[in-house]
Design a binder for these strands. Structure first.
Length: 452
RNA sequence: GGCGGCGUGGCCGAGUGGUUCAGGCAAGGGCCUGCAAAGCCCUCUACCCCAGUUCGAUUCUGGGCGCCGCCUCCA
């Protein structure tokens, strides 16, 4: 059973009931005001791995991830471009799903848009106002943080120290600097939805409360997001649920940030790497491997050499897949090695120890190759199948086959003929021609093999 | 100022109070190969500094130095 670190308690503890019970996972999704970068990529990969692993372990997962399609940045961009905010939001939502598909990220079971839930958000804010926890002011409705028992749980700070450290500019409309907006009254020209406090739009933190409770139910299993969302976003989500008296996430998961070079990737530093561009220049699986080789709670350093290195590593995995495809007819009954699977599971169950789990699988890859080298086919296939199955459980699929053009196939056939006649000069020339087409060449017992 | 994390071999990155070793990539040598490639074998370079606890610390404690993150509607 999976044990996971919980930000609320600081402990690694069981995620909750496995098996038939539904495991509700809510992951904070994108605000669609720009193209996704590799930081978004890591975030989705981390939770994709979590989800896949739970499902592989027999869990019945319901994965919900929101799309924030209205916010200040979207409004500003729409104004700059003189087009409706909906166009901006939809354009970047499309680029989001496109990039996620390319990374092999499983789509969430439900991906609600914030603007589809505004009526429910208004209801929730009204309830908070009625309870006395929230108050209306000149520019919106705010939640009073001091009205929430245990405010600061996720920040691991007392309300006093949060108050002392608040860097938020003084806002006359708030009673306390740490209070946060539930509803923002529309300024002239801004998009607005009706509410008891006039036209406006919801504050960011409210949508996740409404959608997670609505789609997963009270006391859902897990709420995840980046370390940077721990405070204030998640703290403020939780505050609303607590103020309403509704059981919220039972488990809080936060993953580390992506560093490009030595510091956090951010627009102000100018080191943002566009996700789609990165996927253009590397095997799309390479980034997943990079992410898996670092523990999800640690920061991960990414750069070109790291991605290229991972891509090379994957070639070795693909090579094994090809060997297995050839050897399997002779070892149809070979079961995946239980030892490998057992170790893999043990590492993953311990707070998603993917670096160790992956290392164990690579160990099995080597063992499999060694066995196959030694003609212990059944042993090799057993080890290899377990390794590839483990990688697949993490969303990393090794490919034993490659699309090869007719031209290259023809050259390969001619090269085999030349080699059969021991005309190696011609064979080498033909090999160069195949390589010039962008392929790699390997000789096997079955003849020339052409690879990407 | 408050809170948290990290400093490991050429690079990335796990882990542990001691005995054989993370793993990946790179480098050197070898096996295999017509030559390569792939694969395998061997080799190499470690645990930031200073104290302390201990028979023994990279691993625990304290201090120091350095780096990173959060406290801003940044994943």
């Amino acid at each position: 059973m999976l044990r996971l670190h919980d930000t609320a308690t600081g402990e690694v503890r069981p995620l909750g009931p496995n098996g038939a019970a539904e495991i509700g996972i809510y992951v904070c999704g994108p605000t669609v005001y720009g193209r996704p970068h590799i930081g978004h990529g890591r975030a989705t990969l981390v939770y994709d791995v979590l989800r896949r692993y739970l499902e592989w372990s027999g869990g019945n997962v319901r994965h919900v991830s929101n799309v924030t399609d209205i916010d200040d940045k979207i409004i500003r961009l729409a104004a700059d471009e003189h087009r409706p905010w909906q166009d901006v939001a939809r354009r970047y939502e499309d680029s989001w799903w496109s990039a996620m598909d390319r990374m092999g990220v499983a789509r969430p079971h439900v991906a609600p848009r914030a603007t589809d839930y505004i009526g429910r958000m208004v209801d929730l804010v009204a309830e908070l106002v009625a309870s006395g926890a929230a108050y209306e002011s000149g520019d919106g409705v705010y939640l009073s943080a001091s009205a929430v028992p245990g405010y600061g749980l996720l920040a691991h700070q007392s309300i006093e120290s949060l108050r002392a450290g608040a860097r938020v500019e003084l806002n006359e409309e708030k009673r306390a600097p740490i209070d946060f907006a539930l509803w923002k009254k529309a300024k002239p020209g801004e998009p607005k939805w009706p509410s008891p406090w006039g036209g406006g739009r919801p504050g960011w933190h409210t949508e996740c409360v409404v959608m997670s409770l609505e789609l997963l139910g009270d006391g859902f299993a897990l709420h995840g997001g980046g370390e940077d969302l721990r405070f204030p976003h998640h703290e403020n989500e939780r505050a609303q649920a607590v103020a309403l008296g509704r059981p919220f996430a039972r488990h809080w998961v936060h993953h580390g940030m992506v560093l490009f070079g030595e510091e956090k990737m951010s627009k102000s530093v100018g080191n943002v790497v566009d996700l789609a561009e990165m996927l253009d220049s590397h095997d799309p699986r390479a980034y997943r491997l990079v992410v898996l080789q670092a523990h999800y709670r640690e920061q991960v350093k990414v750069d070109e050499s790291r991605l290229a290195e991972a891509a090379r590593t994957l070639q070795g995995l693909d090579a094994l897949a090809r060997r297995l495809a050839e050897a399997e007819p002779q070892a149809a009954t070979a079961e995946p090695s239980c030892e490998v699977t057992h170790d893999f599971r043990a590492f993953m169950d311990d707070d998603l120890g993917s670096p160790r789990a992956v290392a164990r699988l690579f160990d099995a890859v080597k063992q499999a190759n060694t066995a196959l080298d030694g003609r212990q086919v059944k042993e090799g296939v057993s080890l290899g199948r377990a390794a590839l199955a483990g990688f697949e459980a993490l969303g990393l699929v090794a490919t034993g086959t490659v699309e090869v053009s007719e031209q290259a196939k023809d050259l390969a056939r001619r090269r085999d003929a030349a080699r059969a006649e021991r005309d190696f000069a011609l064979a080498d020339t033909l090999r160069d021609e195949i390589v010039a087409l962008g392929y790699r060449v390997e000789d096997t017992a079955a003849g020339t093999r052409v690879l990407r």
